[in-house]
Amino acid sequence: MIITEQMIDDIALGATVLGTGGGGDPYSGALMAKVAIATAKHPVRMIPLEDVQDDWMTVPSSMIGAPTVAVEKLNSKDQMLIAFEAMEKALGTEVAATFPIEVGGFNSLIPILVAAQKNIPVIDCDAMGRAFPEAQMVTFFLDGLPSAPNTLADERGNVVTLYPIDGIWSEKFARPITEQMGGSAAMCDYPMNGKNLKRSALPATLTQAMKIGEAIRLANDNNKSGTQAVLDIVGGHTIISGKIVDIQRETDGGFATGGVVIEKLAQFEDTGVDNVFVQFQNELLLAHKGTSRADMSQDNLLASTPDLISILDHETGKPITTEQLRYGQRIDLIAYPCDPKWRTDKGIEVAGPGYFGYTVEYQTIEQLKSALKR
């Protein structure tokens, strides 16, 4: 499948929904991807995961850092290529194909830049099915695949190559390096052959993002609900339709962290939820009844990582990233199920609420919605 400008716009929109508030700025990512396909010597292709050959060397292309930094610190068009070619040097071989490590607004499009410059395909898959804030929060880590080598590059041309023993140590090393690189860096990790990729990656996630983006676009063209168009694809439900009445946000330790308070709109159905507090670390990670962190409890829990939480514009259904949240915005807060791999014991250990220090236990959104009705 040849990647077109319309596909880029739809992927950017849908991937920002699946990015759960993180994954980078979709606008700048879409602009860079469009320039990349327009100036490429060959058409840039997206291929299904099953078309990958077992002996291919594959490497994801992504950015690491705080999304708030990337809004002001624009990425160099060659930054990702530098990290990618550093990976080829570390491996001692050429890479046959690339793919996004996560489905997020900017990070879903980064592989298109590399594919255009290297004349290789983009694989329709990722390792999260959403966006997560840390390097070990990938299906490859769940399946015991090695992270090393890692390569990081900044816009100045600085390159660092790491050989961590696993994804946890990759995060420990890469995050402070990223801070020294200005809070945002290009990164390649988890190089693997096609056989392992097909065993561990989540298939057709770029296609899903594209379908979500197209559904939002068509809903707005036909005066229909963009939020409902999203829910028709991803499942799940609307937790609350409301107005943002407070936002707390800071950039610390290489992450954008904080919380947002949502007050119910008068016309929203009576579910016993009048105010919701949503906590985030790059991505939206936990939603509970109340107006502050102090209200967090098991009884007040409404949704939590690894299930997906997204904030959509109430009028259009278009996603709003954590760095774009503002006082007074009218929004729909939705929750929908993660890939089954994240609901395993290992998945919850790696990316559940306990990992982030939240004092609640993971319950599926289906369980939480059922309890809310009683």
Rank of each mutant, 00 (worst) to 15 (best):
E269W: 07
H288Y: 02
H42N: 14
E315M: 09
D339P: 01
Q117M: 12
P48N: 13
I64L: 15
V52K: 00
G272N: 12
F106W: 03
Y163G: 05
E72N: 15
R217S: 08
D143Y: 11
H314K: 12
G254D: 04
D124M: 10
G354I: 08
E214S: 12
Y355N: 06
D78M: 13
S184H: 03
M296R: 13
D221Q: 13
L74M: 14
V234D: 07
V276C: 06
V159W: 06
V95Y: 04
E5Y: 03
E179T: 04
Q53R: 15
I331V: 15
S304A: 14
F132V: 10
T4R: 08
M296N: 08
G235N: 11
N223W: 02
G183I: 00
A287R: 03
S147W: 00
P340A: 09
F356K: 09
A266H: 11
A30T: 02
T93V: 13
E50C: 13
K289E: 13
A15Q: 04
A351V: 02
M63N: 13
A86Y: 00
T364V: 06
Q180D: 02
G167N: 03
D154L: 09
G183F: 05
C188G: 00
N220I: 03
G235Y: 08
A38G: 14
A229I: 10
L109E: 06
L206Y: 05
T20F: 02
I47T: 11
M87F: 06
W169S: 05
A209G: 08
Q136E: 15
Y27F: 09
T344G: 10
S225R: 07
V350I: 15
A148G: 04
T316K: 11
I311T: 03
S297T: 14
T227Y: 02
T322Q: 03
A287D: 05
E5M: 06
Q136I: 11
D126G: 09
F141R: 01
V245Q: 00
I120W: 08
S304N: 06
G167R: 04
A294Y: 04
E171G: 02
K373I: 09
E283K: 03
A287P: 02
E214M: 12
E102P: 10
R374Y: 05
I123R: 03
R199C: 01
I311C: 07
E50L: 11
K118A: 06
I2T: 11
S304Q: 00
K172V: 11
L81Q: 09
A116H: 04
A38D: 12
L31C: 04
L145T: 00
F356S: 07
T178W: 01
F106D: 01
